[in-house]
Amino acid sequence: MLIGYMRVSKADGSQTTDLQRDALLAAGVEPGQFYEDKASGKKDDRPQLTACLKALRSGDTLMVWKLDRLGRDLRHLVNVVHDLTERGVGLKVLTGQGAAIDTTTASGKLVFGIFAALAEFERELISERTKAGLASARARGRKGGRPYKMTAAKVRLAMASMGQPGTKVGELCKELEVTRQTLYRHVSPTGELRPDGKKVLGIGFEDAF
């Protein structure tokens, strides 16, 4: 079965999917087999795309007008197609720079393989630039890396909450907006301060309060 996915960036009526729909219909997609989002391509929340991907079954082919209608970026696109391929679902792009992509054919798979290789190359470049930037910053006496997810206030709240009979760790993590792993790196199950927690507070345990 052929399934069509369409997207426009604005929901104010200034953009329509008519051109995409006509092209997909001409390519063989039946009128009742369309999914349509009106949202920026960079948004994670595209409910119709989510529904479309869930509806696809082995042997189906997902049809899109252009490659940028589907993926937020190259990495996201590669992940989506990898998942579809594992499920036995094909992808066909009708026009634009990705028009040679048709994962139901050998040549189309080869083209997408090149896209996947470029995505991997992009990841490696970003990693190398990040490492080089951090090394340069350290050489100038600056510390790099991500900022702590745990603030001093969050650490103190975790210390006060952990070990209490009524505390549910999952709910505490949601309140602090951290994972269990992050929480336990800073505070023990009994509320004792751990090295990462001391680092956030910048003081010893005896001065934590």
Rank of each mutant, 00 (worst) to 15 (best):
V93N: 03
G59H: 13
E36Q: 15
L125Q: 00
Q164P: 01
L91E: 06
G90H: 10
L25C: 10
R75H: 08
A116Q: 01
V111W: 08
L74E: 05
C173F: 11
D60W: 07
R87H: 12
A26K: 15
R146Q: 08
G108P: 15
R140Q: 12
V29F: 01
A99T: 08
D196I: 02
Y148A: 04
P189K: 05
E120M: 00
K143E: 13
Q20G: 04
K154W: 05
E124P: 06
K131I: 02
D22S: 14
L172M: 04
K92G: 12
R7W: 03
G204R: 09
G32M: 10
R72H: 10
S40K: 11
L94P: 02
L2H: 11
A116F: 05
A119W: 00
V78P: 00
G71D: 03
D60Q: 11
E206N: 10
R69E: 05
T179Q: 13
V187L: 07
P47S: 07
T85E: 14
A135D: 05
K10V: 14
L91Y: 01
N79M: 11
K42A: 14
K42H: 08
E122N: 00
L19P: 08
R138I: 01
C52F: 09
L110V: 03
R129W: 02
R21V: 01
L49T: 00
V29R: 07
L49M: 04
F121P: 00
S40Q: 14
F209C: 03
